[in-house]
Amino acid sequence: MTTAISLDNLDISYSGNRVVQGVTFDVAEGESFALVGESGSGKSTVLKAIAGLAPEWTGGMTVLGKPRGHGPDKDLARTCQMVFQDPYGSLHPRKTVDAVLSEPLAIHGLGDRSERIEKALRDVGLDRRFRFRYPHQMSGGQRQRVAIARALMLEPKIMLLDEPTSALDVSVQAEILNLLKRLRAEQNLTYLLVSHDLPVVGFMCDRIAVMTKGQIVEIAPVTALHDGAFSDPYSRTLYAASGG
């Protein structure tokens, strides 16, 4: 097994304020790894640093064995994509689904656009009717499917998921989670999921890292969510708070 993402003693700052310190973990290829913790614990920041949206970091970071630069880069885009939390903010309000999905193809000069877009829509379970709709003509769940389709357009190996369902209704959440689980099995994706929702994590992931105050306090297998076998006191509190 090769490592998809490897972080070694990573510190991340926003304009000089260090918000995450000493984060170290490895995600194997094909694995689904979760970062859990309450709001402000720095879990999304770790994701942003990997994606290149939080360039102020020190420490070691490799993605698929290659050292990672500090900003977004075009080569990384082919292997690593991100799905954002808010499907209302992550789609351009004046662009049709077709325009949103052809953008990555245009940036990377890929052909067969029409076929690729149709395939991506099929993959995320959207009817062809949606292809020329604007975001305001779709529901939150449908928008999130479009956002997932956009991330998949470049056929990445790694998907960074930033609370992909927390802005959605409970019934829609289940659909999106099933979709993500199916896509992972079909396309052999590696997931790095950020969530504060332990049941979601229990459903989606193989291993979890518990974060608080910008640090990882414990990395545990997902079975800990069933039997409560956490060693760190904070993890146990979090587990108890979610009704486990």
């Binding site: 994606a51 949206l53 991100m82 351009h92």
Partner: peptide, 9 residues
């Protein structure tokens, strides 16, 4: 959506 587009390269 701007961040997402940047991540696309």
């Amino acid at each position: 959506f701007v961040s997402a587009t940047r991540l696309l390269g």
